[in-house]
Design a protein around this nucleic acid. Structure first.
Length: 282
DNA sequence: AACTGTCCCTGCAAGC
DNA sequence: TGCTTGCAGGGACAGT
C-alpha cells in the first residue's frame, strides 16, 4: 500500500517522465476518482497544461501547472500512476488518462489506475487550497522533506495520549507513515504498539525519530514495498523490494529476525493488522 | 482539541 | 464447482 516511500518513488517517476511535457488531452472514466472537483474541472484544468514540478507532502503528490493551477494526486489504498507508450492496452480501472506530447519521438500516456477507487485526482487554483484541500494545512511534518528530529517529534507528541501506533498513523502528527512502516519503525526502536505515547522517555522519542527517518529513507532507496497483492508498483510498473527487508509486517508466526526465538504476533488494532515481537518490543 | 468508530470500494482467498 | 464471507487499508467524517 502506498505510504511515504512508495509515494516518493512515484514522485521521482513523475519528475523524470512527466514534468516539462505538455498534456494534450485528458479523459476521465470514473467520476469517483475526480469526485472532489468533478470531471470538467480536471479535464479543463489539465488539458494544454504542463507540470512544472513534482512535489510531495506526506502521501500527497502535488504539482504546479504552468497555467497557475495545481494538481493533487492521492493514491490511497490501491492507486497507481503509470506512464506507457500511447496504444498500450490499459489495465482495468484506468480512470484518468493524460495524453502527453512527444518526448524523444515517443508519445506517452499517463494513467491513474485505481481498483478500489479510494484515490483521487484534483485540479485546483492554489489560492483556493485551504478550501479545496483543507487537510493539507493540517498535515504534520514530513520526515523527509522537512527538518525532522527528536525535538520535532517530541513537540508533535506533546499533549497527545493513546497507543503509540495510532499516534504514528495520525497524519496530523507525522505525515506519511502508514500501517506497514509504523510496525517496522516500532520494531526497530523496540517499542510495543500499545505503549501510551506519553509514557515514552525523551531518549526513546529521539531514537524513534531516528528510526522513522532511517526506515523511510531505506525504503525509498529500495523503491518502496510491494506486497503479495502487487497493488503498488512504480511509474514504470516495477515492484519495490523493501518488503524483503520487513522484519515484522507480513511475518506473523515466523521467528523474530532480531531475537530469533519468539514468533511474530499479529493483532487487530482499529481495524488494521499490527505485527510485533512480544519479546523485543516493550 | 483530540480521540474512537464507521464508511467508502474491489479483488482475492478461505470456508462451506 | 460456486457461492458467501472476511480481510486488506488511508483518511474524511461524525459523534463523544
Amino acid at each position: 500500500m502506498p505510504e511515504l516511500p512508495e509515494v516518493e518513488t512515484v514522485r521521482r517517476g513523475i519528475e523524470a517522465r512527466v514534468v516539462g511535457r505538455k498534456i494534450l488531452k485528458v479523459e476521465v472514466g470514473r467520476e469517483r476518482s475526480v469526485r472532489r472537483v468533478g470531471r470538467d474541472a480536471v479535464i479543463h484544468g489539465m488539458t494544454g497544461a504542463t507540470l512544472v514540478n513534482a512535489r510531495r507532502r506526506g502521501k500527497y503528490l502535488l504539482s504546479d501547472l504552468d497555467t497557475g493551477d495545481a494538481l493533487m494526486i492521492h493514491l490511497r489504498m490501491s492507486g497507481r500512476v503509470l506512464v506507457e507508450p500511447q496504444g498500450t492496452p490499459r489495465p482495468p480501472h484506468t480512470h484518468v488518462v493524460c495524453y502527453l506530447d512527444a518526448c524523444n519521438g515517443q508519445n506517452d500516456e499517463m494513467w491513474f489506475v485505481d481498483p478500489r477507487t479510494f484515490g483521487e485526482v484534483v485540479v485546483y487554483d492554489p489560492r483556493d487550497e485551504s478550501a479545496v484541500l483543507p487537510e493539507l494545512s493540517r498535515l504534520g511534518p514530513d520526515p523527509i522533506v522537512d527538518g525532522f528530529n527528536g525535538d520535532v517529534l517530541a513537540r508533535q507528541f506533546h499533549g497527545r495520549r493513546g497507543a503509540i501506533k495510532q499516534v504514528l498513523l495520525n497524519q496530523h502528527v507525522v505525515a506519511g507513515i502508514g500501517n506497514i512502516y509504523a510496525d517496522e519503525i516500532l520494531h526497530r526502536v523496540r517499542v510495543r504498539w500499545d505503549r501510551p505515547v506519553d509514557s515514552l522517555s525523551r531518549r526513546t522519542v529521539n531514537a524513534m525519530a531516528d528510526c522513522i527517518v532511517a526506515i523511510l529513507r531505506e525504503a525509498i532507496e529500495s523503491g518502496g514495498s510491494t506486497l503479495d497483492d502487487t497493488q503498488y508498483v512504480d511509474i514504470e510498473g516495477k515492484v519495490g523490494s523493501f518488503q524483503e527487508m520487513h522484519r515484522v509486517y507480513g511475518r506473523e508466526g515466523l521467528p523474530c529476525l532480531t531475537c530469533g526465538k519468539t514468533s511474530i504476533r499479529r493483532v487487530m488494532v482499529a481495524g488494521r493488522s499490527t505485527c510485533f515481537c512480544p519479546r523485543c518490543q516493550k
